[in-house]
Amino acid sequence: MSDWLADVERALALAEGGHGRVILLVANRFAHLKPLMQLLERRADQTVELRTCASDLREQPTGATVPLILRRQDLRWLNRNRPLIAERKLTLLVNARPDAAARLPAEAPDFFDWIALRTDVDIAPMARTEPVADRLLDAFDVHAATRELLDPAIVTVERILAFILATEDVSDAIDDDPESSENFVGQQRGRVIEVLLQRPELRRPVRERLDFMKHVVWLGES
């Protein structure tokens, strides 16, 4: 078992019966999610849902173990609502890229102060990925969309692509509600990927990412 997974397992073993706990997992890519979810589901002996919106914590039962992907727009919410973690005795596994983690002390200092442990995930990066496409495809893992992109009459697939490729931080493009009927990018996902595959410089990372996304589908379905 890799070191980071051993760290998480040790923390989970002791956290049972405690008053809540926050663990920060910092990863360049989110390829660690599959072994993490496998570990959580094995321990819980049931399906564990990966959360992509911090306010979902309100819906969690007491004592739940919650894996969460950290989004920039959730920092203030987490800072204000951190008592929920102790109130519900949640074990919260916050998954963040290094740039998102680095924002925590400045933008969510109280929440940062509650983090008990930081673990750097040592999964090797995918070879020869192109940074922008990488961020884009990571965003697709959680059904990327933005509020500005909700009107299909105004925004075409090409405009979505232009927006996504120009975006410095696609974490801003992750929608609160991936199942929403308004989630235009989610609905157009197949068409967007088809266009992406037509771009020679993106073809390889798109295919590699689609392979990886099979795990994500697995996460959602299991």
Partner: peptide, 9 residues
């Protein structure tokens, strides 16, 4: 471990 956490950001 705590040093690494505190050095975040």
């Amino acid at each position: 471990e705590q040093r690494r956490l505190r050095e975040t950001g």
